[in-house]
Design a protein around this nucleic acid. Structure first.
Lengths: 164, 164
DNA sequence: TTGAGATTGTTTGGATGCGAACAATATAAA
DNA sequence: TTTATATTGTTCGCATCCAAACAATCTCAA
């Protein structure tokens, strides 16, 4: 939760509030910095790489997942993008308005909706994704190679712990 | 970006799309799992610990920051909570409606708004925050002590790299 | 003292974001 | 065949979330 202030400062300032509680400040530091980092990365990417194309972070992720797996079912896309199906409905409408993707009904199961990337979407991703990846490289450039793998593994462990 | 599928599966499936691109899959795995984890933690906390009190993740963070630093200026709260001032305006309105916090004008600077936690807010945090922390402990329980510190440090490094 | 520029919180407009209710479709057992 | 149950995407209501425009206030130089 802490941002500008260090954990030590927060701990000192919050001493009166927190001193009588039994707390694990290291676990707290993990979740705190997890969100701080995720939020910083997201905002930075939206303001730099994604700004030109007018895509939000979520719209980009949805388009990316569809691009890799197309034709893709919406339930798969929602799962991969870590968003609810209700949210996906809105994002897909946005992508359709932008002419980047289209919806169609499944021929074998009338309940399913199949999503396909439009030519404009393919053209966009062809240049946007490599650029996106270069920013990803930049963001982790202060972390050594072995540590990057360890970092990804620990983040995966957190997700696994929650989702079972 | 990948969720249910492993990076290897995505790489294999996306071979046609990605094979001709020069990509760093390890950097990709970091940002991918960073968001997957942050999203999972947030949703899990909102559905368990926070559900009873009717607080969203953001509302809880804002209340927590105010609780530690009160009386707090809104610009400080927004910075600590990693949200924009526009977002904070809405969240504070929510917290006021719930009777957990109040706004007041600064006596020395008419531009500033000072936020204070109400008695109901104090009472809530007294039990909610320790419970919140117990869930934080649970979430990182599969990661060893030393690794937890390393994890927090690397996440801090990512944020620092972006925010300078 | 005064007026240009800086700072702050709110408003506006638009896009997520989710749970719950819903209608359409599919599946299963009787 | 029929009927109860399950699954899927959308709609609805509401709460974030941000950039940009805005009004109020402060600062500081002339």
């Amino acid at each position: 939760m802490t941002g500008r202030y260090t954990l030590a400062e927060t701990e000192a300032r919050g001493a009166n509030r927190l001193s009588h509680m039994s707390l694990d400040f290291e676990a707290m530091a993990v979740t705190s910095n997890l969100f701080r980092a995720a939020s910083a990365v997201r905002n930075h990417f939206e303001r730099t790489v994604l700004a030109k194309s007018g895509l939000s972070w979520t719209a980009f992720v949805v388009l990316w997942v569809t691009w890799i797996w197309e034709p893709a079912e919406t339930r798969e896309i929602a799962e991969e993008a870590s968003i609810s199906k209700a949210t996906l409905t809105g994002v897909l409408t946005t992508l359709e308005k932008m002419g980047l993707a289209t919806r169609s009904r499944s021929a074998t199961d009338g309940r399913l909706v199949i999503v396909t990337v439009q030519p404009a979407g393919h053209k966009l991703m062809e240049t946007l994704f490599p650029e996106f990846n270069r920013h990803e490289v930049d963001v982790v450039s202060d972390i050594k190679g072995d540590d990057r793998r360890a970092l990804a593994d620990m983040l995966r462990a957190i997700t696994a712990k929650i989702e079972g």
